[in-house]
Design a protein around this nucleic acid. Structure first.
Length: 369
DNA sequence: ACTGCCGGGGG
DNA sequence: CCCCCGGCAGT
């Protein structure tokens, strides 16, 4: 409807971009971390059918595709992050007036700490506005009451304009700080690295801020990946699958309207995500959710002897198909071989499915990482 | 305890 | 060469 001023459009646009980036990154992480290593089922040479697998009945009837990898990919987390809104509540910081007599004590660079509970105020050239975050609305008002009323009437469709607010409006607006001379500065508060929001600050109802400071200590290099490597695919830490997979950066959307701000994030596979280690979101290419349907992955119908050549060929095929386009970012020096190796994938009992190198206890060359 | 694999050994 | 394992180092 009402088009805001150019300023608002600008704000809206760039903020959505930011959100998109975060959400996209989150989605990538999620889908990567949850996507199992779908690789060709190397059906063990079971003698189920009358002939052995290396005979004519190479790929035929009984479900090859029901071959579920040993134990690690039973991860139940859904590939699409639901972005549940209950993870945190909208905090309104209580102080929104501009304290004029705030002496200069702020160096701008101190915004890296999340848990800095002190609501710092900028200089008095800052102006606090409230921006509607409803999907296609970017309305910016200067008072909280105004924006609440806006949301309540326009978006929530409640006409009782005074006191029937259950606080739901708080979800749909955010607080932006406008620097009077440069908008980008004001956005800088909202953008990637330095979340301005006092995340765990003054919970409204008095309840403790929900959950999850950090996850386990795997944020430093970021490139870690591989959520439930060996056995524990099921996330038994308390956090929801979302909070586990979504980087905490997602939360700095300030309120959790991400669910409505960005619906259809479709990840364009890889190419735009070559980890140039650009910002600070490093993505470990676990394995793309490739699911090659069809025969190409069935165990080779070679009529060679069981071990020597057949194995060789099979390993080659698999390696070709399943090696992700990973480009190891330089900042993650793998100290040791990580990821799944033949031993872990196939298990000790299927040792004859390992690649030769693994069998010889050499560096694995099938799942090379 | 488990896993990846280097180094070394036997055939 | 092929095949295997002791043992180290990382998790």
């Amino acid at each position: 409807m009402s088009y805001p001023c150019v300023l608002d459009l600008y704000l809206m646009r760039s903020e959505e971009e930011v959100d998109m980036d975060k959400v996209t990154a989150a989605m990538v992480l999620t889908s990567l971390s949850t996507s199992p290593l779908v690789r060709s089922p190397p059906v063990r040479p079971s003698d189920g059918l009358n002939g052995s697998w290396k005979e004519g009945s190479s790929y035929s009837s009984s479900g090859y595709w029901s071959w579920s990898a040993p134990s690690d990919q039973s991860n139940p987390s859904t590939p699409s992050p639901p972005l549940s809104a209950d993870a945190l509540k909208p905090f309104r910081m209580p102080s929104l007036g501009a304290a004029p007599d705030d002496t200069l004590d702020d160096h701008d660079s101190s915004s890296l700490l999340f848990d800095e509970p002190i609501p710092r105020k900028r200089k008095n050239s800052m102006k606090v506005m409230f921006k509607c975050l409803w999907k296609n609305c970017g309305k910016v008002l200067s008072t909280a009451a105004g924006i609440q009323r806006h949301i309540r009437t326009i978006h929530l469709g409640r006409n009782c304009d005074s006191e029937c607010s259950d606080g739901e409006e708080d979800f749909y607006y955010t607080e932006i700080k406008l620097n009077t001379d440069s908008v980008a500065e004001g956005l800088g508060g909202l953008s990637p690295a330095g979340p301005p929001l006092p995340a765990a600050l003054t919970p409204p109802g008095g309840g403790a801020p929900p959950e999850q400071h950090q996850r386990r200590g795997d944020h430093p290099t970021g490139v870690k990946g591989e959520p439930g490597g060996s056995g524990n695919g099921i996330s038994n830490n308390n956090s929801t699958p979302l909070s586990r997979s979504a980087p905490s950066a997602l939360y700095l959307v300030h309120t959790d309207h991400a669910y409505q701000a960005t619906a259809p994030v479709s990840i364009p596979s890889s190419s735009s995500f070559t980890p140039t280690s650009s910002a600070n979101i490093s993505i470990s290419w676990q394995s793309p959710p490739v699911t090659f349907t069809g025969r190409s992955a069935s165990p080779p119908h070679t009529h060679t002897r069981s071990q020597g050549f057949g194995e060789q060929q099979r390993s080659h095929t698999i390696a070709t198909l399943s090696s992700p386009p990973r480009a190891t970012s330089s900042l993650s020096r793998k100290s040791r071989g990580e990821g799944k190796k033949c031993r872990k994938v196939y298990g000790m009992e299927n040792r004859d499915m390992w690649c030769t190198a693994c069998r010889w206890k050499k560096a694995c060359q099938r799942f090379l990482d």
